[in-house]
């Protein structure tokens, strides 16, 4: 029995793992409300498997809210409400019967501020696998090493795995958080301004890491840094606040197109630094 069968058997309401579909993630006419305030309006876009998609736009335009649609993190906010279709491998993830816990295993998230748990480096990485039932010490050792190697952190921490995850530098902490997500073996990694608290060298390391991860993972990254979007992403979505203060998608396309030949005047103004 393979994992896909197991997942189906548990009836999580989600598609089998790594189902062969064109669009990994899809938004169709999505509106997100916090109470009566509409944070994002009429979002529609397709995100391909194994690509890096950057979401850019001025502060408060709903970038993070949009990102959190994909793993239903907005559920944690009592007043949040979603309209429209959010698809993961062709399945509506907001329909009844979807197991949010299972969804978040497959759509992992890295946050703006490095947020390792106040436990050892080892326990941080082993946290997800342990919650999902792996108890065998050797299996955990393997997962921890593999994840830290993938996150390009192994060489720096292999001799101090029992030290606190908070004792390493900010850039290392963020890579630890990435390793922690990788240990769960997700298919999609959502990154919410992962480098905004890091220095340029640590930022470059994370960007290199993203480029290597994209062979197996679909990555969506929110960033304030337009150079970063240009350097790292395949596709770019530009969001802006419209007249009623809701975030709307102004332009979505190949990163090379958006940055060299934007179709929308607002996009051009933003990327050339005329506002925002």
């Amino acid at each position: 029995m393979n994992i896909a069968d197991l997942v189906n058997e548990k009836n999580t309401g989600l598609p089998p793992k790594n189902a062969p579909v064109d669009g990994k993630l899809r938004l169709e006419q999505v509106n997100l409300y916090y109470g009566s305030f509409r944070a994002v309006k009429d979002l529609s876009l397709d995100i391909d498997t194994c690509s890096i998609t950057a979401i850019i736009g001025p502060s408060g335009c709903g970038k993070s809210s949009m990102l959190r649609l994909f793993n239903r993190m907005n559920d944690l906010i009592a007043s949040a409400r979603v309209e429209g279709l959010v698809e993961f491998d062709g399945v509506d993830i907001y329909q009844a019967g979807v197991d949010v816990v299972e969804l978040r295993k497959r759509v992992g998230m890295v946050f703006q501020k490095p947020n390792p748990f106040p436990m050892s480096i080892y326990d941080n990485v082993a946290f997800g696998p342990r919650r999902h039932g792996i108890r065998n010490k050797r299996a955990l050792d393997e997962i921890v090493e593999k994840s830290l190697v993938q996150a390009a952190l192994w060489d720096e921490v292999k001799d101090k795995l029992d030290q606190s995850g908070l004792s390493i530098s900010g850039g290392q902490q963020q890579r630890l958080c990435i390793a922690r997500v990788l240990a769960v073996e997700p298919e999609v990694i959502l990154m919410d301004e992962p480098c905004s608290a890091l220095d340029p060298i640590a930022t470059l390391k994370i960007e290199d890491l993203m480029r290597t991860l994209t062979s197996t993972y679909t990555i969506v990254i929110v960033t304030h840094n337009m150079q970063q979007a240009a350097r790292v992403s395949d596709m770019t979505a530009f969001l802006m606040v419209d007249d009623d203060r809701s975030g709307t998608l102004v332009e979505y396309g190949a990163t090379s197109e958006i940055f060299t030949n934007p179709k929308n005047q607002k996009t051009e103004d933003y990327i050339t630094g005329r506002f925002g």
Partner: peptide, 13 residues
């Protein structure tokens, strides 16, 4: 810190 809770939920807890 709420970040810890967010991180744990984000890992599928």
């Amino acid at each position: 810190p709420d970040e810890y809770r967010q991180a744990a939920y984000g890992l599928g807890s």
